[in-house]
């Protein structure tokens, strides 16, 4: 099954869980636009987070047996749209903006207590975006995009000339910073946004470039715990297609390939991780989310498609635009879009 946030042409917002053949398994309405939807594999629930600068999240039962639980972060904070569960499904970690202090935080929520917020720790950078629990179930990897925003100024980016993105590893039990990987000089305006696991101790990232519209820097790279951060060397012609912007990233189940979407470029790139060689370029209008399934990838779009289905996913008579992330769970799918 797949999960994604969506918005409709009628101006409504929600999150949806779909089966592989496009059936709606669960759907929840949202008061404003959501961003990422994550699964809690322990109890068949999913949690959708508000897109920044929203401050709500909704946990909903995929089986539809329990009413959804809406929770918020504390005052003076807002969510960045992403969260990650510990493997026992009890603790939920979410990226947040301590906007008065222009500092990133990780909010900690107790799933067993209606997602009560029980604490927070620093993200050790500005503008934390996606985060993930490493396979050891203790260390969190966090992409600090480096961009300062404040709700008083909407989504305006307040520190572009001074931005300093990073990818950090944090001990989720103590909040201690274990490693911080900053971007090299000359790449400081690549905002690291999306991350996914790339095997033990490894994280793959994709960014968005905030510098000149005439430049075409590399946007995709990987970090190794105890090692370093390095960008892949992807051919310039393929980087051009991304239009300086990535929507989401996924790594294949065999760990050899990654897929990245660009809504602006209307493209899905499949790249060999080892070499940076582009294996496939797929056009997908308003490509948004991507997930690894079976031996390939499935992508969603802002035109209501999950590529691989022969029709747009629509619910009732409305057409839905999926948001930038698509998560897969269940692992039984043999459907692969790009392989």
């Amino acid at each position: 099954m797949f999960a994604s946030a969506f918005y409709s042409r009628q101006g409504t917002f929600g999150a949806v869980v779909l089966s592989e053949d496009g059936r709606v398994l669960a759907k929840v309405d949202l008061p404003a636009r959501g961003h990422d939807v994550i699964f809690n594999r322990q109890n068949d629930t999913a949690v959708v987070f508000a897109r920044r600068p929203g401050n709500f999240a909704v946990a909903f039962d995929i089986g539809g047996k329990k009413p959804p639980v809406t929770f918020t972060t504390r005052p003076q904070r807002h969510f960045y749209g992403h969260g990650a569960f510990a493997s026992d499904g009890q603790l939920l970690f979410a990226t947040e903006n301590d906007y008065e202090n222009a500092d990133g935080t990780i909010g900690v929520f107790d799933a067993s207590s209606n997602y009560r917020r029980i604490g927070e720790f620093q993200s050790f950078g500005v503008g934390p975006h996606q985060l993930m629990m490493m396979p050891d179930d203790r260390i969190l990897a966090v992409a600090n995009g480096g961009i300062e925003t404040h709700p008083d100024y909407g989504r305006a980016k307040l520190n572009i000339p001074e931005m300093n993105p990073s990818l950090v590893f944090i001990d989720s039990r103590t909040g201690e910073l274990l490693e911080k990987h900053e971007l090299p000089v000359g790449m400081k305006q690549v905002s690291v946004r999306h991350i996914t696991g790339g095997g033990p101790g490894r994280v793959v990232f994709a960014g968005q470039y905030e510098g000149s519209s005439l430049h075409r820097p590399q946007l995709i790279g990987q970090v190794e715990q105890g090692g370093g951060l390095a960008f892949l060397n992807i051919a310039g012609t393929a980087i051009d297609l991304l239009r300086r912007y990535t929507g989401s990233i996924a790594v294949s189940q065999d760990l050899d390939r990654l897929a990245v979407t660009s809504p602006r470029g209307g493209v899905v790139l499949i790249v060999e991780r080892k070499s940076g060689r582009v294996l496939r370029t797929g056009r997908l209008s308003k490509a948004r989310g991507v997930a690894a399934t079976g031996n390939g990838f499935v992508a969603s779009s802002g035109t209501g498609r999950i590529a691989g289905f022969d029709r747009s996913i629509s619910i009732g008579d409305q057409h839905y635009s999926f948001d930038n992330h698509l998560n897969a769970a269940g692992g039984k799918s043999e459907m692969s879009v790009f392989n």
């Binding site: 636009r33 809504p263 602006r264 470029g265 209008s285 308003k286 802002g302 635009s321």
Partner: peptide, 11 residues
């Protein structure tokens, strides 16, 4: 303009 530009982009 269904490719290349969306005011709803971002994040």
């Amino acid at each position: 303009l269904s490719t290349g530009f969306s005011p709803m982009d971002g994040d």
